[in-house]
Design a binder for these strands. Structure first.
Length: 864
RNA sequence: GCUCGGGUGGCGGAACUGGUAGACGCGCAGGACUUAAAAUCCUGUUUACAGUAAUGUAAGUACGGGUUCGAUUCCCGUCCCGAGCACCA
């Protein structure tokens, strides 16, 4: 920015020249190449980006800078560091961008990747680019398809607590049928070995499909007409698509799904052994949504039909005054009376056609009476059965027992339709209000009106009620999850094709010869009919042994395992060699945004556990430590976006201030995990600091260093900084380390310290943060090896030991003066000296102190 | 509504297991150097009151209580902000 004559002098800080020079040298020497060695490893990973068309803004590199610092720090401390980068190149965003620009996704994706790479290169990251992965490369997605094949050929054995090969299941079916099989399945039919053998192929596959971990599911899906595809739950926000904001409706569809619910409990338990933020773990816990309760069957009056419900509050069974079925409930019309059939059908049809948005916008409960009654098994009284869309078809059994006195929603419904409300739980310390104005839903109370449960508190009553239900043979203890199976098909072009051909019977057959390459087609736009664009490519679809699956896999397929591929990215025989996986192992540090909490981060854990079951990995959590970086907002405090015109481009910052300044500034801004606004003035402060740092080495434009022994003061400053920075990096507290560097340089400048030994150590501890300037000065000091493979200086406590401490002396908790004592002074001497102090005497005002508290090397407090 | 975070100067933010609140940086004010500007350096900067000044006194970490010799830190209640979930029985 300033081109005064002295700026071109080789002895001034010319960051542009320096940064270019070292980025080239590091690349030429493959300085950051990672290879298996005898050294301990450290695996630091960034969430790989979608190569979007708009490039990076200064918010994106925040996490990359942090992981880069940790990687460099670990390398200086003797670790063999794996720090790779790649691109999540398949999926909706890339395809949407291609459609908007009218270019083939393969072309735009390559162009975007190139642009990302240029931007990343300017910031001096220590990635081992030889390990780059792209999810859209055939030699990468070959393995994504292979993993799908594994899911397809495995089932979950609940007795063994792990996934097993489907051939074991077939063996069991052949020998003993399925009654003794304890699989995680939706199959409710029981068959014998003989029956199994007699099944035609289609029927066999229909059964197996109910056990496979990758299976064809007919479910209600989130259908987005504008995007022409099905979306996962987490891709739908407030009833519209996360990307684009288009309306989403519910629709029945056949779809590949992964049976993630088989792993619900393990996904929950695993959270306890990993170092993630509490909030993120909580998000996953909520998403998995485990709840304990009971399933109970209610008999329909004058019928052999039964309704099974799930409840977490069996203690309130005496207060169950009606039942509600979801409109989608199977067999609902068989239960309702002839008189009511017409209005029930009408209600069901209305509910079916209502979009998510409409359902959510509803404040008033709607419903219809079925004209049928069920029997409350505890009171033996008949209770009416209703249908209403406030009951969700997809959770529990799709039916509930309604206890209006103790559930807000049931209360509201009972009020709207004038149904009976019977309180059965009252607060511990008072009588329940009568009549009830709102539901008493607290889990803290005492049962009454409840026969054998009377007088018990809620938690005890729950146990007793379940026992009774089990004794009567009408139900049992049950754990339910909110987690749904993961929809795995997308009706889109830009994704991994399934390695599946449907034979003449419509039975899915695996294609063994991988990869199944994505055909290069001209028209990749969504058809809008619900079919994938691939369905139109007849010469591809029609295969000699049948027809191909034309859906593609979702964006998260490739990202669910990419961290494993980095261990051995060019392997053509395996997704990664056993040896490389064992060495690089789990990701030690994973840095990225929290928006992936219920998507990528959950799916990756699921895949890892599955691969662990199959013996491919010997750990079952992928990311030991996870840190979510915050957002960098625009200077106006709003989210950085083209729309607000507040986007700051890192290229411009590198041009104007240099990459080292950018890196240091982003770290200095505040705690990594916080959101904070960008500030142009702030970056100038950091820029000034680096100028000052440079001048520490120079005097009158000449390198000015002394080889004499360092002064104790300088030593103390250095070692204080070593200690602080080492601790800060481990704690990911980078803002405080930058401030420690500033303090250090300020103090050394004041001392006019030009001691080579001291300054060299300062260079090394600052190298992870500002890799270019430190490397340049390191070279100018006469070093021939890169600073980035030097040794982290050893912290020596002796150098910072003080021999006296200036005690703050407070009277009644308020600091009044300071007195210096030797660090090993004994309490009695300190107390005596303090009481003789003039200022203390003044505050004592002649009175005798009640108490004198002396905390060694901390504080003295005189209590009057 | 529920769950999880969080509220500290004009601003971004420091403060180890309770022990000198406001580190570091920005901004602002004043000064030095310079013909001038840039760059650099120095001084001051929580608020109120008193004093020409050095300085002193009081208040102060969202608000109200509590525990303690001592609370930004621990406990209870209230308010506000952010994030996530949201008819999950």
């Amino acid at each position: 920015m300033y081109f005064c004559s002295d700026m071109s002098d080789s002895n001034s800080y010319n960051f542009q020249e320096i940064e270019q020079k070292w980025q080239n040298k590091w690349r030429e020497n493959s300085l950051y190449r990672a290879e298996i060695s005898y050294k301990p490893k450290y695996y630091a990973l960034d969430m790989f980006p979608y190569p979007s068309g708009s490039g990076l803004h200064v918010g994106h590199p925040l996490g990359y800078i942090a992981s880069d610092i940790v990687s460099r720090f670990k390398r200086l401390n003797g670790f063999n560091v794996l720090h790779p980068m790649g691109y999540d190149a398949f999926g909706l965003p890339a395809e949407q961008y291609a459609i908007q620009t009218g270019q083939h996704p393969a072309v735009t994706t390559e162009a975007n990747i190139k642009r990302f790479r240029e931007q990343l290169d300017k910031m001096g990251f220590c990635y081992d680019w030889e390990r780059q992965v792209k999810t859209c490369d055939a030699n990468y997605y070959k393995w994504t398809q292979w993993f799908f094949s594994l899911f397809f050929t495995h089932w979950y054995n609940k007795s063994a607590g792990k996934a097993e090969n489907i051939s074991l299941l077939v063996n069991k079916f052949e020998k003993e049928g399925n009654s003794s099989v304890n699989g995680h399945t939706t199959c409710t039919e029981i068959f014998t070995a003989n029956e199994w053998s007699a099944f035609p192929a289609v029927e066999k596959e229909r059964m197996l499909n109910q056990y496979r971990l990758a299976f064809i599911d007919e479910t209600t899906v989130n259908w987005c007409a504008e995007l022409g595809t099905v979306l996962a739950n987490e891709e739908v926000v407030n009833g519209v698509s996360e990307r684009g904001g288009y309306p989403v409706v519910r629709k029945k569809m056949k779809q590949w799904s992964l049976r993630i619910t088989a792993y619900a409990d393990r996904l929950l338990e695993g959270l306890n052994q990993i170092n993630w933020s509490d909030s993120l773990k909580e998000i996953q816990r909520n998403w998995i949504g485990r709840s304990e309760g009971a399933e109970i069957e209610f008999q329909i009056e004058n019928s052999d039909k039964k309704i099974k419900v799930f409840t977490t509050r069996p203690d309130t069974l005496f207060g169950a005054t009606y039942m509600v079925l979801a409109p989608e409930w199977d067999g609902i019309l068989e239960i309702c009376s002839n008189e009511q059939k017409g209005s029930v059908e009408e209600y069901i049809n209305k509910a079916k056609n209502r979009s998510e948005i409409e359902r959510m916008a509803d404040t008033q409960k709607t419903g219809v009476f079925l004209g049928a009654y069920a029997v409350n098994p505890f009171t033996n009284k008949p209770i009416p059965v209703w249908a209403s869309d406030y009951v969700l078809a997809g959770y529990g059994t799709g039916a509930i027992m309604a206890v209006p006195a103790h559930d807000d929603r049931d209360f509201e419904f009972a009020q709207a339709f004038n149904l009976e409300i019977i309180p059965v739980i009252k607060p511990k310390d008072k009588e329940i209000e009568s009549p009830l104005q709102e539901a008493f839903s607290a889990k803290d109370g005492i049962c009454f009106n409840s026969g054998f449960l009377d007088g018990l508190d809620v938690s005890e009553a729950i146990k007793r009620a379940i026992e009774e239900v089990e004794n009567k043979g009408i139900g049992n203890r049950k754990i339910n999850y909110k987690l749904r199976e993961a929809g795995f098909g997308r009706q889109r072009y830009w994704g991994e094709p399934f390695p599946i051909i449907f034979d003449d019977n419509g039975i899915p057959q695996l294609i063994k010869n991988l990869p199944v390459e994505l055909p290069n087609v001209r028209s990749y736009k969504p058809t809008g009919t619900g079919e994938s664009p691939l369905a139109a490519v007849t010469e591809w679809v029609n295969h000699e042994s049948g027809t191909r699956e034309t859906d593609t896999m979702p964006g998260w397929a490739g990202s669910s395992w990419y961290f494993l591929r980095y261990a051995d990215p060019n392997n053509t025989n395996e997704f990664a060699s056993k040896e490389s996986l064992e060495y690089w192992n789990q990701v030690d540090l994973y840095v990225g945004g929290s928006e992936h909490a219920t998507g990528h981060l959950l799916y990756s854990r699921f895949w890892t556990k599955f691969l662990y079951d199959l013996g491919y990995l010997n750990w079952d959590e992928p990311f030991k430590r996870l840190v979510n970086q915050g957002m960098i907002m625009g200077e106006d405090g709003q989210k950085m976006s083209k729309r607000w015109g507040n986007v700051v481009n890192p290229d411009d910052v590198c041009e104007q201030y240099g990459a080292d300044t950018l890196r240091l500034y982003e770290m200095f801004l505040g705690p990594l995990t916080d959101s904070k606004p960008w500030n142009t003035h702030g970056i100038e402060g950091v820029s000034r600091f680096l100028g000052k740092f440079w001048r520490l080495f120079y005097k009158d434009q000449e390198l000015n260093l002394s080889n004499s022994e360092a002064s104790p003061e300088a030593r103390k400053i250095l070692h204080k900084t070593i200690k602080k920075v080492s601790e800060d990096i481990e704690n990911m507290s980078f803002n405080t380390s930058v401030s420690a560097f500033m303090v250090c340089v300020n103090e050394l400048s004041t001392l006019k310290c030009n001691n080579k030994e001291i300054l060299e150590s300062v260079l090394v501890i600052m190298a992870p943060f500002a890799p270019h300037i430190t490397e340049e000065l390191w070279e100018r000091l006469g070093n021939t090896n890169s600073i980035h493979i030097a040794d982290w200086p050893k912290y020596n406590e002796e150098y910072i030991r003080e021999n006296s401490f200036s005690y703050p002396i407070s009277v009644n908790g308020k600091t009044r003066t300071q007195i210096e004592f030797p660090v090993d002074a004994i309490k009695a001497d300190i107390e005596k000296a303090v009481l003789e102090n003039e200022i203390v005497k003044k505050w004592l005002d002649g009175k005798a102190p009640k108490k004198v508290i002396v905390v060694p090397n901390r504080i003295v407090n005189v209590v009057v």
